[in-house]
Every structure is written in C-alpha cells, then in structure tokens.
Simulated assay, not measured.
Amino acid sequence: MMKLDGVVAFVMTVEAGSISRAAQRLGLAKSVVSERLAELERSLGTTLIQRSTRRLSLTASGETFLPRAQRILREAEEATSELAARSGKLAGPLRISAPVGFGILHLGPALGAFLRDYPDIDLSLELDDNFVDAATGGFDAVLRHGAVGDGRLIARRLARSRRLLVASPGYMERHGTPRVPEELERHRGLLYSNRTGDWRFSAPGQGWSVIRPRAALRVNSGLIMRDAAIEGLGIALLPTFFIHEALANGALVEVDVGLQAEGAELFLAYPKDHGAAAKIRVFGDSLRRSFGSPPYWERRDLEKPSTDT
C-alpha cells in the first residue's frame, strides 16, 4: 500500500532538487527520506527518480506521477486544515521562506508570539536572500519585500517600509551633502547586488527618476550595507526595517535629495488554493500584530508593540 509519507518525500525531493535538501526541509535524516522514496517506488512497482552522484532526474513514470502526488498532498492538507479550522485548532507543518537580514532582525520575537498562540503548528523557517518561487519552491509561503507580480500567487500585505538614502555623519562631513538627485552620481554608492544597481525615485508628475551612483561596494546583504554605511564607506539606499535604530541613535542620517525612493512593502505570498491557507492566514495575522500598524520600524519612538496575549 502506498504511504503518504513516501509521497511527501517524493514531492519534497523533486521540489528541493536533492534528497539532502529535502531531508533538511522535512527535519529528517537523509537515510530516512531515501528509504521512504524506495518504499514508495516498491509499492508502485516502478522507478520514479533516477539517482546519480551529481543530480536527480525524473523518470517517465516520475513525470506522470508528480502532478498526481502534488494533488494528493494538496487535498490531504486541505482536508486537515478544514477539520482543524472547524474545531478551532490549527496543527501540522508550515514551511516559510524569508530574507536573511529581515529574518535576523525581526522574525525571532514575531515567531515566538505566533507559536505561543498556535503550539500545535510545526513551523519551519528557511532564510534565503535568493529569489524563492512561492509556487514551486517547496514552501507553503514566502515573505518578500517588494511587489509580487505573479498571477499564480495570493499576496497579503503585512507591513510597509520606506527606503531611505542614508550615510554616516562622518561621510557627509568628508564628502559633502547632496541636495539634488544629480549630485548623487558623484558619491560612493553601497549597492545591493541582488537588485539592479539603479536607485529609483518617484518624481511628482514625472514617473520614476533613475540614479546610477558610482559603486564603492556591491553586496547581497542589507545588514552589511547598513554596517558599511555606518563605517562611512558611502551612501546606501535601505529599507527602514534595516536602519531605524541607526537613525535613532545618530549612527546614520538621512540624505534628502527632494525625491521619495521606491518603497519596500512586506508581503506574504502563497499559491492560490493552497491546502495550508488557514495556517498561512493566521501566520500573516500574527506577524501583522507583532509588527504593528504602522510597523515599529516606521515609528519614531521605536517601541515594539507587546506580543503578550
């Protein structure tokens, strides 16, 4: 008889791209996932995945079985969520991906509040600054800052965050303070390498104005950009959720060139008709309560809202 845990192991291995990564996401030993795959193949009487030392590939049988396996899991999750919602109790796995810097700074207390309210949910969080496809990446939902232009997904807005140009007081003393956008091109820019090197600003009645600063540093970490700006290495364009404390204590100051930078709103994105939709909704609601409205990184007092229930 085909077991559901074998189907889970198969789908997760395909979505993760390897047995090792699937085991990591499932919180299991690699040998356990391998055995469950083998047991599934024995029960079906066919090979689903062709294993080699370098990569895994689906056989013709695997290609045929994959969409059915995904549907089996989706329907099982939908049934479980529906029964749990009716009983007022949510339980089971919830897999979330989030950006590294935001997760380090803001998700710890927020997750604590969520798990106190829903102790029977088995939450897995993976931090990754690379693009994660919420529809096919093996996660129930993905936390993103920026627009989600994907028709396959539902995107719930969690909080807003402005992007501000910032520099250290020492940098401004040495290099001068730019007053208009054109002057930024003569300054040292600290740029986020996972986005285009352009800085985008909204000009009233004129659409977007694009500035291309001279790069002093390119890095795929907003936290390192913040620290480099504090050290006086250049000007950075960063969301307020990275820099609110540095602005409050004077380590950074805002560089005002008369234009508003493109924002960085936070969204929780997940596939339409997802089986774990009830758990995702309460997760999103919990994050919104923890962040506050407006979120604490947008408030001058910097006092985080209470997470006590």
Rank of each mutant, 00 (worst) to 15 (best):
G275Y: 05
G45D: 06
D285H: 08
F114R: 03
L105I: 04
G207P: 04
R288L: 02
A76F: 09
P305N: 07
D301I: 06
L164K: 07
D227N: 15
L56Q: 10
P305T: 05
E63S: 15
G62C: 09
D227G: 05
R156A: 09
P305Y: 04
V8Q: 13
G88K: 01
D198W: 01
D150W: 07
D301F: 02
L56T: 10
A38T: 14
D120L: 04
L111G: 01
G197Q: 07
E182F: 03
I19L: 13
L4G: 03
F114P: 00
A246P: 12
S306K: 04
L48T: 15
R281V: 02
A85V: 03
L28C: 10
S97C: 12
A277T: 10
V166Y: 00
T309F: 15
T53K: 15
S286P: 03
R179V: 03
S81R: 03
L164A: 06
E35R: 15
S57W: 00
T46M: 13
A85P: 00
S20L: 14
N130K: 10
P213S: 08
R36Y: 04
K89E: 07
Q50G: 14
V255A: 08
G62P: 11
W297H: 06
S286H: 04
R160P: 02
R95W: 08
N130L: 08
Q206I: 01
G250A: 07
S18G: 10
A246F: 09
M1F: 07
G205F: 13
S306W: 01
E254C: 03
A76K: 09
G45L: 07
V8N: 02
I72T: 06
F242W: 11
A76I: 05
F114L: 05
R179D: 09
I19M: 14
R71P: 02
G108Y: 03
S286T: 01
D273Q: 12
L223Y: 08
I235M: 10
T64P: 00
R54E: 14
G149K: 09
E126L: 10
A264I: 07
R214H: 13
H106A: 08
I72V: 15
E254S: 02
A91Q: 03
A215R: 13
A236S: 13
E262Y: 05
G176M: 11
D128N: 13
F241E: 00
A229V: 12
L127K: 06
A277P: 00
T80I: 05
A135M: 03
G197M: 04
S31H: 09
R95G: 01
G45V: 14
T53N: 12
R25G: 04
G292W: 06
A215Q: 11
R86E: 12
A91V: 00
F283N: 06
F201K: 11
V210I: 14
L184Q: 08
A264P: 10
S34N: 15
E78M: 13
L237G: 09
S221E: 12
R36A: 05
T46Q: 11
L165D: 10
Q260Y: 00
I49A: 06
L217H: 03
D140C: 06
P99K: 02
E77A: 14
E254I: 14
R200H: 12
D227F: 11
N130H: 10
S290W: 01
T240Y: 00
L90G: 05
Y118E: 01
S290M: 00
G207R: 10
L40H: 02
A110D: 02
V257M: 08
A203E: 15
A229M: 10
A215N: 01
D133S: 12
L266N: 00
P67E: 04
V7S: 06
G62R: 07
P294K: 06
V33M: 13
